[in-house]
């Protein structure tokens, strides 16, 4: 078991000013959450801003002490055994760099080898492996300030793997990165998770990161876990609609079917949203085939963003979803 969390709670006390008076307000950032993560699993912890996911990660890395509850990360209590745990975890924060801005990545690697007390031969072996797998060779000696964001993030993730961590925390690792570099980063994280068995815990607002990297998703909102499931189950549970796109050889008739809403209509094409709770997909396809001569037809799930937005908009209940491993 890589992570086990029981009734983990974090309460902050905020001082609010009311004229000259200072009023203390208690804010429950994380409210008695429970979950566990198996070794080698890849978990996405998602939620809107202020949901409590960063606070959870900070407690799991030993940065913050919880107000109540227990957590074991790789068998250690993070806030009591922070230093021991740090040897076994890696962390990448998209908004925080551990690379030295004015120096090439190789200099930071060298420093990290000293910080983690790495054996020289093992360090060189791991560094060379990372240079090869992350294709760092072309910019290893270039100051970080001159790298593209994609290159920087590749070096950033490689730096976090130098000490061979068993668990990798990734907090918005693709933020601001272009679409090609983003895909490369996702592939590298996925590869490291699958081939080397590193447990991954990723937070991101990018649905693509979740879709490509995670086996399982925990949605956290207002300090509560509102969903804990794998990606396909999550889709099924929250999908009550599908998108049907059709192209015709000639002009087509108009759609007239309850539960099928036209999103776009042109002379030779049409896009329809099917409400599967009202009408079956099969019935809609039959209706579309009657509208004209079909050249092409496709049915897709709505984008993951829409599902996530739907989950975020659900009212909060005090019951966590059942623990899932």
């Amino acid at each position: 078991m890589a992570i086990k969390v029981e009734n983990l709670t974090k309460q902050f006390i905020l001082n609010k000013r009311d004229g000259w008076r200072s009023i203390k307000t208690e804010v429950l950032a994380v409210d008695s959450i429970n979950f566990s993560v198996n070794s080698g699993q890849s978990l996405a912890l998602i939620g809107p801003n202020g949901a409590g996911k960063s606070t959870t990660i900070k407690m799991l890395t030993g940065i913050l002490h919880p107000s109540a509850g227990q957590a074991k990360v790789l068998g250690l209590t993070p806030w009591r055994e922070r230093t021991r745990l740090a040897y076994q975890i890696g962390a990448v924060f998209g908004q925080r760099s551990q690379l030295w801005y004015h120096l090439p990545p190789e200099d930071t690697f060298e420093l990290l080898s000293r910080i983690y007390n790495l054996d020289r031969n093992q360090y060189k072996e791991q560094r060379n492996l990372l240079i090869e797998r992350f294709d760092l060779g072309p910019f290893l000696k270039t100051p970080v300030r001159k790298l593209s964001l994609g290159q920087r993030m590749r070096a950033e993730i490689a730096a976090s793997l130098l000490h061979k961590p068993r668990l990798l925390f990734l907090d918005e690792p693709t933020i601001g990165v272009d679409i090609v570099a983003r895909q490369e980063l996702r592939d590298l994280i996925r590869e490291w998770n699958k081939q080397d068995g590193v447990t991954v815990l990723i937070t991101s607002h990018d649905a693509g990161d979740i879709e490509h990297v995670a086996d399982r998703v925990i949605v956290i909102n207002h300090g509560h876990i509102v969903l804990d499931d794998n990606l396909s189950n999550m889709r099924q549970r929250y999908l009550s609609s599908k998108i049907l796109s059709a192209r015709f050889h000639g002009e087509h008739k108009t759609v007239d079917l309850h539960g099928a809403k036209v999103l776009q209509s042109a002379n030779y094409s049409i896009e329809v949203e099917i409400d599967t709770s009202v009408v079956t997909t099969e019935k809609v396809i039959k209706h579309i085939l009657e509208l004209g001569t079909i050249a092409d037809i496709s049915i897709e799930d709505p984008p993951l963003e829409e599902i996530i937005a739907h989950i975020y908009s659900q009212p909060v209940t005090n019951n966590d979803s059942s623990t899932h491993t």
């Binding site: 890395t61 230093t83 740090a86 925080r96 910080i115």
Partner: peptide, 14 residues
């Protein structure tokens, strides 16, 4: 200080 707490070293001396 967060970033410094992620390293396996005594916080202040590091």
């Amino acid at each position: 200080l967060d970033a410094w707490m992620l390293y396996p070293r005594h916080l202040l001396s590091h």
